[in-house]
Every structure is written in structure tokens, then in C-alpha cells.
Amino acid sequence: MLPFSYTLIVVLLGTVILGGIAGMIGTLVVFRSQALIGDALSHATLPGVVIAFMLMQARQLEVLLVGAFISAVIAMFLLDVIKHHTTIKFDASMALILSAFFGFGQVLLSHIHKDGSAAQAGLSRFIFGQAATLLRSDVYLLAGVALLLFVLLMLFFKELKLFIFDEPFFVSLGFSRRIMNALITFMVVMIITIGIRMVGVILMSALLIAPAVAARQFSNRFGINVFLAWLIGGIGGAVGTYMSAARANMPTGPVIVLVLGVIVLFSVLFSFNDGLIKHAFLNWRYRIQIQKYRALIHFYENPDKAPMAEDDYAYFINHDYLRHTNGDLNLTKKGLKKVRLIKGVVDNEY
């Protein structure tokens, strides 16, 4: 058992806050079918970090993050231009922006490295992140941004939900598509900007997407999905941080992502809503029931046709699924219910 040192508590606070708020914002992104945008934008922050360092000759986190923010906004702007003024497909343009910006960032990094600049080590941590060296002041910054994003999300929750569900109808009510797009982009870029210090530009999108995907398996309500994503993101952050701290040379960011990956795997398998295990079980039960109640189903579907041998019905008559009334064999209420259950017949459907 690892003792909770001061450093560990600071790091834990940071990753839990980040994981939670990233999960919430990520829900919006996932339901907008824009999961890849998060990935493209987080990769696009790298050159901004390096350029901010080169221009300002400063290592303060705030300065570097402003660079990251601007870089991501430029990437988003380029994505928009490509979408509206070229015939390039959107997924292709995302891949293009992602690799171009990331490559540019790498070139700039090795350029500083050649200069012999001592800060190079400090900058390359943005690629994979480095949560272990998180400072108290970093956590304050993180908590401030998280609070801002949380308040924005709560204020515009219903609008965001409707916008994502049905954009044309949302706009027809007189709301602005542009403001909503700007709001979502702002929130995504903000969360990425504060997250890259801890988990790095490469893995940041997993923090956005994994909690949302896992949460989706457990609820059919949008609000509950957002809440669950917050919970799962927070848990992933906590467990990942603790595990990486428990052993030497375990990078925090990748471990958090790994933990989230396991959570996603389990939720996809075991979800009581739509899980693979549940599906397999239902399929198995369906097959068994079809075999057992074959004759009953046959009777339900072909009441007028020549019946199967009387023997086939003996079991069902004994168990009150079928009954002789006025010399005719009829389905009882129980029998009707059973067949409809197996066949998945729902009333009031047209």
C-alpha cells in the first residue's frame, strides 16, 4: 500500500479533476460524432507550445498553454476553411491537420534541441505528458478552468443537448448555430489545452472519448451519460495515477488511458443496457426457447392450419399454455403472453 504523500495528493487531485471534466465535455464530442476532432486538435497544440517557448523564452506553464490554445484554434479554423471551400473529405482533412501540425511541432522541437536549449526536456513532456511533476499552482489553474467549463456546461446544458440531437430544429427555434459551434469548440480546446501537460498531446483524446463511450453503455438519458462520464473519467484518473505511483518508471498519462481502456472494455462487455454478454445470453435463451416452445409458436402463427401431432401439444396443455374450449384448441392468456415475449411482439406499434 502506497502512502499518500503530498506530491501524490497533488497529482491525484489534478488527474481526477481533469479526468472528470474531460469526460463531461467528451460526451458532447462523442454524441456530435466528432471524436476525431478532439484528437486532431490535441495533436495540433504541439507547435503552439514550442513557438510560445521560442517567442517568449519562458517556461511558465501559462505561457506555453496560451500558445497551445492559439495553435488549436488555428487548426480548427483551417478545418473549417477546408470543409467549406474545398472538396476534401472531412475525415481526410482531420488526418491532414493532425499530422501536419504534429510534424511541425516535432521539427520545431528538434530545432530547439540542436540549439542546445536546456528547456527541450521540459517541452518534450507535452508529447506524452508528465503528471508526476505537477505543482500545486498547476492544480489551481486546472481547477479554475474545470470550474469555468462546468459552469458553461450547466448554463447551456439544454441548448447543447438539443443542438447535438437535432441541429436543424434547434436553429429553427431561432438559436444560433455559430455560437453553439463556437461554445463547443471553445470547451474542447480548453480541456485539451489544460490536459496536455498531464497526459500529452498524443493520448489526450482518449480522456475525452473513453469515459463517454463507457458511460453510454449504462444509460439512455443524456444528463446521466454526462454524469457517468464525469464519474468514470474521475475514477480512471485516480486509479491510473495511484497505479503509476505505486511502481517506479510508470508514466501516469498512459496508465490512466490504459485504465480507461479497461473500463470501456468491461462496460461494452457487461453493460446491462446493450452489453455483448447480455446480447449473447439473450441470443442463447432465445434459441433454447424457440426449441422448447416450437410447437406453441407454430400454433400461434398458423391457428387455422392442420395442427401438429396432438402429442406435441400435450406439454403445453398440461402447463396451461393451451386449452380446449368448445372442442377447439386455443391459446390461453399465459400462452399468448409467452409467444409474444419470445417473438418480441410489442403492442401499439405502427
Binding site: 447535438i164 440531437f165 443524456f222 451519460n225
Partner: peptide, 10 residues
């Protein structure tokens, strides 16, 4: 309207 994602939680 609104039918693009059949799994949308609403």
C-alpha cells in the same frame, strides 16, 4: 429530423 444517431440517449 434527429434520426441520424439511433442510439442518442434522449
Amino acid at each position: 429530423a434527429g434520426l441520424e444517431d439511433r442510439h442518442f440517449p434522449a
